[in-house]
């Protein structure tokens, strides 16, 4: 049976569109960057929970520094690595609000390790969204604490050498051991199925924060196709083949 496409494209037939809280500002991220997908999931969760007027996001330093340009909620832009400290104060001073940080691996796992661990240890009722793509994106592809052994970046051009640079840091395993965390999970957003799972994880974390259960961290193993010098499609494959071995998917803690 023939059906004109215009008979399908009607509001009543809508099954998917850009989240309402994601505005029309063109995103500065490179084509295929995982950040955009995670932004969409956060925007959807906030909308579905009906908490847009109560949510305050803390943006990091790094590629996601401009997260505040894309999701229509109030934002605070943090100094490099300090987002969990800022979130701590915002939540303590406004206990009924939803407070989350959005941080990359340089921000969270290098310069902000202390703030991260101590916010988790205090069991701050916040959500930490941790984008781990094994590289510094914004500054041009330097080595991160999470860079894989042998992985090439502009500051380890011959590959990460553990004798020189130490080992890839597994943050989720670290904060799982900290008593203040209630939910620690590692997700990805490279397939429709993984995206659906990641969204459920974000929703669960946001609900934990609103219920005062402690700190939730969602590590999202991501790609940086520009930094990795691959196409977005190839970067997803490379992530599955290489990143997932060191950073396995799934819940580490859910109490």
């Amino acid at each position: 049976m023939y059906m004109d496409i215009n008979d399908i494209i009607k509001p009543e037939n809508l099954v998917y569109t850009k989240p309402r809280l994601m505005n029309d500002n063109p995103m500065h991220y490179c084509p295929g960057c995982s950040h955009g997908v995670v932004h969409k999931l956060i925007a959807e969760v906030i909308d579905e929970m009906g908490i847009e007027e109560e949510t305050i996001g803390i943006a990091p330093v790094g590629c996601a520094v401009f997260a505040y340009n894309y999701i229509d909620i109030d934002w605070i832009e943090a100094a490099h690595g300090r987002a969990p400290a800022i979130a701590t104060a915002v939540k303590r001073l406004n206990p009924k609000k939803m407070v989350f940080t959005y941080q990359g691996d340089g921000d969270l796992a290098a310069i902000g390790t202390a703030e991260t661990i101590h916010a988790c240890n205090r069991g701050e009722n916040i959500v930490i969204i941790f984008i781990n793509n094994g590289i510094y994106g914004m500054t041009g592809g330097q080595m991160a604490p999470t860079t894989l052994e042998g992985m090439k970046t502009s500051t380890c051009p011959y590959g990460r050498n553990v004798a020189l640079n130490g080992y890839p840091l597994r943050i989720a395993e670290l904060v799982e051991r900290v008593d203040g965390t209630c939910y620690v999970t590692r997700q990805s957003v490279h397939t429709p199925a993984s995206i659906r799972k990641a969204k459920k994880a974000i929703r669960h974390a946001f609900e934990n924060a609103m219920a005062g259960k402690g700190t939730s961290m969602i590590e999202i193993v991501s790609t940086c196709n520009s930094g990795w010098k691959m196409t977005p499609v190839k970067a997803n494959q490379w992530m599955e083949e290489n990143m997932f071995a060191k950073y396995p998917m799934g819940d580490l803690k859910n109490v």
């Binding site: 037939n13 099954v15 998917y16 850009k18 991220y29 960057c33 997908v37 995206i195």
Partner: peptide, 22 residues
Amino acid sequence: IGCASCGLVCPDGCITVYKVKL
């Protein structure tokens, strides 16, 4: 088939998907 997989994976929110049952 209107499965919205394309929409889900699109990092830039460029895709809108519609679906009808015939």
